[in-house]
Design a protein around this nucleic acid. Structure first.
Lengths: 181, 181
DNA sequence: GCCAAACGTTTAATTAAATTAACAATTCAA
DNA sequence: TTGAATTGTTAATTTAATTAAACGTTTGGC
C-alpha cells in the first residue's frame, strides 16, 4: 500500500474541495484531513470511509486504483507507432490495442472549453489524438498540455478532465468504449 | 464499508487461524482481533493492513469482494427482464446493468416473425438452441431450417437472419457475447 | 494601504483505539 | 477427575487518533 495521504489529497483536489470543505462534508475536523494527507496519523477505517463517502468514492474504488502499477497515460508525438504509411497512415496509440473495442469520435474544443472534473465513471477506456490546437489533459495525478500530434490513453475509471486553455480551437480524434446499454 | 468485523472473522476461519494465531502473525494483540470482529472498535488503516497482510489479502481484494455481495446467480422466470415484445419477444437473464460479458436470452418468435437481414454486427459470437417449433436461420450464404433440439453457432460479424416460417411459435434460448460491444 | 475571509498547518486537550492482563469456557491428555 | 493448554471475551492501562483552537499566509475586496 502506498501512502494514502497524497492520493487522498489529489482526490480532494479533483473535486475542488478545500480541507475545511471536505471536513464539513464528511463530518471530521479539518486538522484530521491535514494530518492524514501528510501521513502524520493513521486514520481509522470508519473515518476514512466518511471522508471517501463525502466524495462519492467507495473503498473498492479507492483501493483498486491503488494497486494499479505505473501505467502510461501520455504519449509524445514520436511515440505513436505507425501501423501503415502511404496515402492513408494509421498511427497507433499505446502498445497493442488490436482487440480493444473502441469507438472513434471527432471533437472540437473551443477556447476555454472545459469538461470539468470527472470522477470514477464506469469501467471503460478513453483515448485521443490532438489534431490542432492545444489541450490540457488531467488523468489521475498527472497533468499535461498536449499539442498537435500528441495523444492520451487511460482507463476512464481514473479521474480525468479536458480543458482548452489556448486561444484557438482544439481539434482531436478520440476513442472510447461504446456507451453501452 | 459495511461490517468488516464479520467478514474478517470469516476470512480468519477460512485460513483456520485462531484469534491469537492471527494476532501473533500480524503483530497485533488478540484482544484487538476480538474487538474488531465484534465491531466494538474502529481499527486504523495501518492495523487492518497488518492483519490482512498476515493472511495474504490486499486491501483491493478485501474491498472488491465487499462491493459485490449483492450478486445474483439465480433468476425466477418472471424475473427475466423483457427487452421487447411483439412478434419477437426477448427476455434477458440478469440485469440490463449487469457488467456480465454474457447475454443470455429466452426468445419467442411468433409465426411469420422475421428479424430481417442483419448485416455488420459486432465482433462477437452468438448461438442458440431451439426448444420448440421451427426456425429458419440464415448465416452468410447458408440457409437452414432448425427444429427443436437443433442449434446454431456463428460469429455475429457474419450477416444473419432469423425467420419463423412455420405455423406455431418458436421458442429458443440464445447466448451472445459480449452484450453491448 | 487596510481588513476580512479563507487557506493549510500546528499544538494542547480530548476521545477512542490498542495493549496488557486478567477472566470463564473448552479441549485434550494423563 | 485433574491439570495444562487452548479457545474467545472483558476490564484497566497505555498509546495514539481526533478534535478544538490557535497560528502564520495568502487572497480578494474596498
Amino acid at each position: 500500500m502506498d501512502p494514502i495521504g497524497p492520493r487522498l489529497k489529489i482526490l480532494r483536489g479533483h473535486y475542488g474541495f478545500s480541507q475545511r470543505e471536505l471536513a464539513r462534508k464528511s463530518g471530521v475536523s479539518n486538522a484530521t484531513i491535514s494530518l492524514i494527507e501528510h501521513g502524520r496519523t493513521d486514520p481509522s477505517m470508519g473515518l476514512l470511509k466518511r471522508i471517501l463517502d463525502a466524495m462519492g468514492v467507495s473503498f473498492a474504488d479507492f483501493f483498486s486504483s491503488e494497486s494499479r502499477p505505473a501505467e502510461k497515460y501520455f504519449f509524445a508525438s514520436d511515440e505513436l507507432s505507425v501501423i501503415s504509411s502511404g496515402p492513408i497512415s494509421f498511427r497507433q496509440v499505446g502498445s497493442d490495442l488490436s482487440d480493444s473495442k473502441l469507438q472513434l469520435l471527432h471533437e472540437r474544443y473551443q477556447p476555454g472549453a472545459d469538461t470539468g472534473r470527472s470522477m470514477l465513471s464506469h469501467d471503460a477506456e478513453e483515448g485521443g489524438i490532438i489534431l490542432q490546437g492545444r489541450l490540457e489533459v488531467t488523468v489521475g495525478d498527472q497533468v499535461q498540455v498536449l499539442s498537435a500530434g500528441d495523444a492520451y490513453l487511460f482507463n476512464s475509471r481514473l479521474p480525468h478532465r479536458f480543458r482548452n486553455t489556448g486561444r484557438e480551437d482544439c481539434v482531436l480524434v478520440t476513442v472510447c468504449t461504446p456507451p453501452s446499454f
